[in-house]
Design a protein around this nucleic acid. Structure first.
Lengths: 234, 234
DNA sequence: CATGCATAAATTGTACACACTTTTCCTTGC
DNA sequence: GCAAGGAAAAGTGTGTACAATTTATGCATG
């Protein structure tokens, strides 16, 4: 660990550093829903006191990525099926607003930027699944950022991360394969098409992502104690 | 003060107490956008240490009600005009979801509960304007709560408070007078009508609230934090 | 009278200490 | 072998101290 020196100079928001790291770990599935996040370990890991770690956990709890119960160790949030459904419903509305604001107004630089992400998605499609999911999320977040509307950006970002976390609970492996092509089509629709057309495509895309994952809930609940014990019951 | 004994028994979330008090003070306009919120004074006012006050400010910042810049005193958030517009756009979408889920499904008890709020609004219509605004907000929040969907409730609540704060910046006095009747009509539409009809009425209502607002306000008075919070300290 | 500039006051950033709660695990009695 | 109980360990809740930074004050200077 050699980054000691910088910490004094910049003093830059260390809470934010932890939040960013954890968000990424969660979205990449390096951390799974239910995983414990003790303040001590977290602080030690990032070379800060418990005060900072605790503050970061508070922030992530406010974002719905962490569950925080009194006197109990913080854990990565475990969205219920209903939560997941609601998160996707809200996501559809928010991203429709994004598309509406962006339709026909993307600059060439923006298109290039988006295609770069899709490229990365394409390359990552046979690697670790976590990377694919992170990149897919990044695509949507970047799209939102292009609206330049801070409030909208904040909510879309938050809901996208929560959606990613929900998928970690309920989707089966390799369910996000075809998203790459859909992202390319989205770019085209937003660049050229009228708002309605682009919105419809976004709706379709998100509905596809959701239904690829959420509609078969029974299989996803394999972590449930009852299911695990079922074969041993008789 | 005499609230000593309870602190041992419940130990109940003191951060939440401060957050609730501040949210209410903000929505009732006892605190105005830009008002300073030093951690010391806040803690002293609520009989807790700076640790707790700071945590509360962090939470409110995450909700968009407080602006928190490094090494600077926290202030009540000052939404820009664009922020206000975006907040209302998102609010329309979210509340449309609420209405869609509730249309034709309100129980008698729920209708009664909502009418009680509208009654209170009616009674408060010639009193302090802050109370009217709080009750109007409460109406929408309660409506959201009736969906029983935690995620939706959280976002609607947050966005309603932010909308209320935005109105504090951009609306002129007495612009929310007629909201009482509109709320009554809303209850009826949601109770009896089909979802589309009720959604349309909600859209109309929110659009009316938003457009009644958009004008500059004056009011650059500076007051004492201690005095302002007195009624909220309990 | 305005303007820097130095210094003091106010305020935040962070670590840490200690009390309290929850969890773990070991012991004891049956 | 096992259920009950009770330390010990692990972990959170909160106050406080001190460093770092910003803001306010006052004084000298042009």
């Amino acid at each position: 660990m050699v980054e000691e020196k910088r910490s004094r100079k910049t003093g830059g928001d260390r809470v934010a550093v932890i939040c960013t790291a954890l968000r990424r770990a969660i979205i990449e599935r390096a951390l799974s829903p239910g995983d414990r996040l003790p303040e001590d370990s977290l602080g030690e890991r990032f070379g800060v006191s418990r005060t900072i770690a605790r503050s970061a956990l508070g922030q992530l709890a406010a974002e719905g990525l962490v569950d925080l119960r009194r006197n109990r160790i913080a854990v990565v949030a475990v969205p219920s099926f209903e939560d997941a459904r609601d998160i996707f419903d809200i996501r559809v509305d928010l991203e429709r607003q994004v598309v509406r604001h962006l339709a026909g107004k993307l600059t060439d630089a923006q298109v290039k930027q988006l295609k770069a992400i899709v490229d990365a998605e394409h390359q990552a499609r046979h690697g670790a699944e976590g990377i694919s999911i992170r990149l897919a999320t990044e695509f949507h977040v970047r799209l939102a950022e292009m609206t330049g509307k801070p409030v909208l950006i904040r909510y879309v970002t938050e809901i996208c991360y929560r959606a990613g976390l929900s998928l970690a609970v309920f989707s089966r492996p390799h369910s996000s394969e075809c998203a790459v092509n859909e992202h390319l089509e989205l770019i085209e629709a937003i660049r050229t098409g009228p708002a309605d057309k682009a919105c419809a495509l976004m709706d379709e895309h998100l509905e596809a992502v959701a239904s690829r994952a959420l509609l078969q809930s029974s299989g996803a609940r394999s972590r449930d104690l009852m299911d695990i014990l079922a074969p041993y019951t008789e």
